[in-house]
Design a protein around this nucleic acid. Structure first.
Lengths: 256, 256
DNA sequence: CGTTCAGTTGACGCGGTTCAATCGAAGTGG
DNA sequence: CCACTTCGATTGAACCGCGTCAACTGAACG
């Protein structure tokens, strides 16, 4: 039951989507207008709510306007592995295959506000009809394709973390990635950003136990590499962290 | 220097590509013809050769006709993580972005024969002009899109293995996946398949040490779950292995 | 005020790594 | 045809990163 006040704040929330997409490829005025229209149809979800279950029929793809979510899978015995963390501006459920090729679900980690991406999707289909890529068309096909490549790169980084890095390196790498992504949507300053995650979520993402996440964060603080107070994270020595974690931010320049 | 004998054998090798793609979506006679034409332009690579370095300018996408390869990343200190194993019928370098969004390279693990996919790619672009999906068009856009989803599912499986499964479970899961994929291209019988990998490669894929891969394989043999002789793997109790590894093969039915 | 939840800490043990040595098969050159 | 080398598989012993178990703390909340 969105009222006018909701609409106003929702419209301002579409800024993260604009920042996210324009970082991949410049947006035309017509496209910008479409993005601002996302604020007109929003929904909210409480922490723990399932936003999407893959293999559960086609659901409407959407963008996260505020709050954090994750894609995850549960094992029969209760173990959980988180594939990716979703922050404002990220897309949910764009691979809307009717076939359940793999089983994963998207779950809200905080209170989440999402906007149906239907108006943009119409543009995606339209752009497919422009063989030249539609530089000036209102379509978003290129943006979504580049976004998919970016996300695959994040999955590859994650695999390296889980397969070949220590808990210390893993954690440093994740903090650098989240800082970079927060900066991309204008939600970070030079050194810090907000990370509304419990240590349990970090553990299930990093493939560690809660206890060890706690000790690893303490070690990072003890070595004066980070500071944490509440959900606020400060990177005290980003260069040193990058060396430890072998972190290289995604390079978006030259994207076609 | 391909001679006629080469061409003949190469043409027969395109069968794996046909099987791989037709499993995703039926192929028309025109499409089948295009696939058979892949055998006309082949290249070979020796074990260890780099087939592709992402972020190294656009390279021609291609299909593996025979031999195995992998996508991997190296850390500065020499640690290696393998993202995916590529078997005959798999595509190489289809995400041919000029931007090096992430750094990974594709390396031959055995002697490899690849075919340039240019003739199919022309079809991909053509299919994009058919808004209805082009059921009868010669394009391969749908196939490559479905293939991308399948590969993403494999990456997710891999993340679960690395993050939340024991060495025993990981190894069982991988063997089941490779058996399923081998069967998909007609390179496996009911219980066995060929796996031309060293234990070092398995270790770098599974995020384990060589020594521990060796011990884990021994445990699988000791418990009469598998048999290995040379590169031949036999799954003695696929059901039991699937329970141990929580393995569920990708479901391709209902793919649009 | 009791309850719940996230964070923290210590003790202990296991899964997996590291180091090092051995062995057989497959080249390779003299 | 035989030393010599190389490579992959194998084995044992010692070590350690990380998980598990359990207890405790403080803040938020009804």
């Amino acid at each position: 039951m969105p009222n006018r006040a909701n609409l106003t704040s929702a419209a301002s929330m579409t800024g993260v989507v604009f920042r996210r997409l324009s970082a991949l490829k410049p947006l035309s005025p017509a496209q910008t207008q479409r993005i601002e229209a996302l604020g007109e149809r929003i929904e909210t979800a409480a922490p723990g709510a399932t936003l999407r279950t893959e293999g559960d029929g086609p659901r409407r793809p959407s963008f996260i306007l505020s709050g954090w979510a994750c894609r995850q899978r549960l094992l029969p015995d209760g173990r959980r592995q988180i594939f990716s963390l979703l922050i404002p501006g990220d897309a949910v459920g764009f691979c809307a295959e009717p076939s359940p090729i793999s089983s994963a679900s998207t779950v809200a980690l905080t209170k989440v506000v999402i906007a149906t991406a239907a108006p943009l999707l119409a543009g995606v289909n339209a752009a497919a009809a422009y063989p030249n890529g539609g530089q000036d068309s209102p379509g978003f096909a290129d943006h979504m394709r580049l976004s998919a490549y970016l996300e695959e790169g994040l999955l590859l980084d994650h695999i390296v973390r889980l397969g070949r890095q220590t808990a210390f390196e893993r954690t440093a790498h994740l903090l650098l990635e989240l800082h970079w992504r927060s900066a991309l949507i204008g939600r970070a300053d030079e050194r810090g950003f907000s990370m509304p995650l419990t240590q349990e979520v970090l553990a299930d993402f990093l493939g560690l136990s809660i206890v060890h996440v706690n000790r690893t964060l303490q070690q990072l603080r003890r070595e004066r590499l980070i500071e944490i107070s509440g959900s606020q994270v400060v990177l005290l020595d980003e260069g040193q962290l990058a060396v430890i974690a072998d972190y290289q931010p995604p390079s978006l320049k030259g994207a076609s």
